[in-house]
Amino acid sequence: MKAKQSLGSRLAEGVSGGLVRVFLIVVGLFWLVPTIGLLLASLRSPEDIAASGWWKVFTEPSQITFDSYSKLLENEDITSSLVNTVWITVPATLLVVIVGSLAGYAFAWMEFPGRDWWFLGVVGLLVVPVQVALIPIAELFGEIGIFGTVIGVVLFHVGFGLPFAVFLLRNFFAEIPRELLEAARLDGAGELRLFFRVVMPLGAPAIASLGIFQFLWVWNDMLVALIFSDSGSQPITVALQTQVRQFGNNIDVLAPGAFISMVVPLAVFFAFQRQFVSGVMAGAVK
């Protein structure tokens, strides 16, 4: 009886195991095909794209060409917007990490009146939609003359990156063993020394998660830059966005452009998967 049952259930398991595998492979293809489509489209001439689907390259591999890429890299608008993306993303990430660490440390280990209330206030800001700030900040930046500049875009990203940064780092720093800090203090370390030599190194995992998160967030942003940058300071997302209205005619710019804009975030993602995932988790799961 028992043997029979286990044989039957083993059979059932074998069949359902096969089904599970087939299902997951189909889903995996569903997830891969759109990106492959973009890649292959970027490797064909606009004439070929207008004539047939990207899957044609499987039967006519001779269609593959890097012309769109080489033309794109001669396109002044695109190359300068790529440079802008870097000029926006790097400072916005560094500033959030530094300012967030300072505040996170203060909230975790310093004593001052109303500390926990201030911290709860910051936590409350976690879910504030950026939309609330678009109009007021546009006017503010206009008045102080940084509307349309890289500085303005960076500042906006720092402002909206900070609540999460402070929240994440304060929680992480609070778990540093008290003895470590006290020992350093007894050795005569000053506040700054303590911060840079003890807290920052011990907090490295959280800082890395935060940095990667913020980096991807800013690199991939379009909305904020759409409003706060001008044609001289716009990042790649905004430069490409202007071409979308004539999608069919600009496919030779859009497809390779989108792919180039994806290369950096994808490289970061694959290189730092673990930190990225733990950043995602810190943001949501408990």
Partner: peptide, 14 residues
Amino acid sequence: MAISMLAAGIIFRL
């Protein structure tokens, strides 16, 4: 999740 909504948008226009 690692790519921009802009890139995803272009992917899905295709």
